[in-house]
Computed example of a mutant assay.
Amino acid sequence: MTALWPWLSLAGLGAFHGVNPAMGWLFAVALGLHRQNRKVVWLSIVPIALGHALSVAAVLAAAVAFGTVLDPSAFRLAAAVFILGVAVYTAFYGHRHRFRIGMRTGLAGLGLWSFLTATSHGAGLMLLPAVLSLCLAEHAGDLAMANSLPVSLAAIAVHSGAMLIVTAALSLAVFTWFDLALLRSAWINFDRLWTLALGATGIALLVQ
């Protein structure tokens, strides 16, 4: 059961990222409504999920690379301080960094937007406690690149799969039954939730 929790955490974070409208489902719905085409919603989900997955992969690759040259305890501390710093910055200045693209964007532009948005929001950083836990448990404290790569790839697949499922379900549900008018009466401040999640990630690394 202990070995299962990191995987459940990765899937749960994927669902959380999928629910967050800033990660893409809101844009997919807007594009579908703008072009009056359900197929556009389906097509938009793919580059959104792919851009998100590439952003997470880049963060995890950087983390493993740094982890191979640092003592695990020192790396945890450095990563925790960095993530908490990002959380504080996001709380005060995150709203200033919004990547905007028009309704005529293609699939490549949508994928690039998703990559930049996920990266600027620190989406991949939230996965660090779970991935580090899996890598260290699997390889007895060794964060060598070759050993950590399969675990990291599996973690990206689980996280991205959960995010894709939730994003697709929300996009199609809102497009089919509710449209964007729903957000006027049922809006949640995900920016605040996101900042709290980043802070919780940093704290989790400190006590891990």
Rank of each mutant, 00 (worst) to 15 (best):
residue 14 G to W: 04
residue 51 G to Q: 05
residue 13 L to Y: 15
residue 128 L to I: 15
residue 153 L to G: 07
residue 131 V to W: 11
residue 166 V to Q: 01
residue 10 L to Q: 09
residue 22 A to C: 09
residue 166 V to M: 07
residue 83 I to A: 05
residue 43 L to R: 11
residue 127 L to Y: 08
residue 111 G to P: 07
residue 121 H to K: 12
residue 102 G to R: 13
residue 74 A to Q: 13
residue 191 D to T: 12
residue 106 G to S: 05
residue 45 I to E: 13
residue 17 H to K: 12
residue 47 P to V: 02
residue 200 A to D: 00
residue 110 L to Q: 08
residue 54 L to I: 03
residue 78 A to D: 01
residue 157 A to C: 12
residue 189 N to I: 00
residue 169 A to Q: 03
residue 64 V to P: 06
residue 190 F to Y: 12
residue 91 A to G: 09
residue 28 A to Q: 09
residue 127 L to A: 14
residue 143 L to Y: 11
residue 83 I to K: 12
residue 85 G to C: 02
residue 1 M to W: 11
residue 155 A to G: 08
residue 86 V to A: 07
residue 16 F to L: 14
residue 63 A to Q: 11
residue 148 S to P: 00
residue 143 L to C: 04
residue 63 A to E: 06
residue 35 R to F: 14
residue 199 G to Y: 06
residue 13 L to V: 08
residue 106 G to L: 03
residue 112 L to R: 10
residue 104 R to C: 00
residue 107 L to A: 14
residue 96 R to D: 00
residue 72 P to T: 01
residue 32 G to L: 02
residue 75 F to C: 02
residue 50 L to E: 05
residue 151 V to T: 09
residue 29 V to W: 02
residue 30 A to V: 01
residue 114 S to Y: 10
residue 167 T to R: 12
residue 89 Y to S: 05
residue 49 A to Q: 03
residue 127 L to E: 07
residue 57 A to G: 03
residue 21 P to T: 04
residue 38 R to Q: 09
residue 96 R to E: 03
residue 55 S to I: 04
residue 20 N to P: 01
residue 145 M to G: 12
residue 194 W to Y: 13
residue 204 A to F: 06
residue 95 H to V: 05
residue 177 W to H: 11
residue 96 R to P: 00
residue 42 W to A: 08
residue 54 L to N: 08
residue 96 R to K: 09
residue 49 A to M: 10
residue 167 T to C: 06
residue 175 F to M: 01
residue 27 F to N: 14
residue 13 L to S: 14
residue 168 A to M: 13
residue 79 A to H: 06
residue 46 V to H: 08
residue 138 E to R: 13
residue 162 A to W: 08
residue 186 A to Y: 09
residue 80 A to V: 08
residue 190 F to N: 02
residue 37 N to S: 13
residue 155 A to T: 02
residue 75 F to E: 01
residue 124 G to K: 03
residue 1 M to G: 11
residue 96 R to F: 00
residue 89 Y to L: 12
residue 138 E to W: 09
residue 6 P to N: 10
residue 184 R to H: 14
residue 2 T to L: 11
